[in-house]
Design a protein around this nucleic acid. Structure first.
Lengths: 192, 192
DNA sequence: AACGTAGTACTACAGCTGGAGTGGTGTCAA
DNA sequence: TTGACACCACTCCAGCTGTAGTACTACGTT
């Protein structure tokens, strides 16, 4: 029987994210998730019918947790709209995502898994599209300079910058990263 | 004793890349490499002292194989230097990298592994830096428009575009990807 | 030409690790 | 009392590793 205690289920999914980030897809076993969540061995087995199941739920969960919190959104709405402020905003975004290191790394693991798992691919594709659309919509609504293409390009560049930072942190220095973010904003968004 | 047949060793490393891309880090075992390379079980064990060893060599190998061949380089040198040609060049670059799908996917797996393996991280960091520098240098030497920062931004954006294409191909259509590449060139490189 | 040697290919084995799943019992609440 | 869940323990199983043992090939020596 599949267990339905939602709190516990969420704890297990979060644990899965941590394991995924720390040990990779290789180390993601039901047992490892049990250990990470500090529940008895066998629990994850009871909650998830299959590995696929677990991975899919983890994928959805990361996106939930990557959303900025209310306070951040409010602060952003209140902020000025000049180019400098925008760059600052983007630096914050990179920091925020990079700060949830395990979540982002887990997401990369999941992307690679998605290569082999149609179900997971479907879920992730939807989330990524929604996220992209939301970003574009938010941007347009905000009245900041730059069109949809600009936003997309910015997101592309920033994403890889984060990958670089998380996986090979010594390729760029922190200063270089900041400078690249600033340049990206300046040249992509502001070049109309 | 560690075996020294270089041809066989290369075949094993190439096989490792395929396995890595197809089955992920989870499926990368000495035995799987043996099977992929169609050599007797135990061979990979004889050639590589450890998993680390195998991964490190695979990392170096992917970069070797990602270099464009002579013909491509020559053609590029002969090409015109206007913005349109440049965009075409970039589209080709994205295609070329995405065409060695397994190599690029393996590289992503390796990046994630590098998170846990200092040795591998060191190797990859060097390769990525060298690749980046080479791109910048080539670009400057070529006389095409755009400074070093522009090249870096372009590389960031293109890298993630490739990730997107390889892992979640339905997020963007092919037309969108082409359009994004064109826009990237236009706004990043040509905006001076 | 015969022989010896070194390095490699191949086969097989034996041990081991670690995960999966499940049945049974305890516990709590409706 | 009953149902759902937590917890524990146990068994089964699959797969990987490393290596010992043997055969083969190439090459150099005498």
């Amino acid at each position: 029987m599949v267990r339905r205690n939602d709190q516990r289920r969420a704890a297990l999914v979060d644990a899965a994210i941590e394991v995924l980030a720390r040990e990779g897809a290789r180390g993601l076993t039901f047992r490892a998730v049990d250990a990470e969540a500090a529940v008895p061995a066998g629990t994850a087995s009871n909650y998830f019918g299959s590995r696929d199941d677990l991975l899919t739920q983890a994928g959805a969960r990361v996106y939930e947790r990557l959303q900025p919190d209310e306070a951040t959104i409010a602060r952003q709405r209140a902020a000025g709209r000049d180019r400098e402020t925008y760059a600052e905003l983007m630096r914050e975004l990179v920091s925020r995502v990079a700060a949830f290191r395990t979540g982002y790394l887990a997401l990369l693991e999941l992307r690679l898994e998605a290569t082999r798992r149609p179900e997971l691919r479907k879920v992730l594709t939807e989330r990524v599209r929604a996220d992209l659309d939301a970003n574009v919509a938010y941007h347009e609504e905000s009245g900041l300079p730059g069109d949809a293409t600009a936003v997309k390009l910015l997101i592309l560049a920033l994403n890889w910058l984060i990958v670089e930072q998380l996986t090979l942190p010594d390729v760029f220095t922190e200063a270089e990263r900041d400078q690249l973010v600033a340049a990206a904003v300046e040249r992509i968004v502001a070049a109309e």
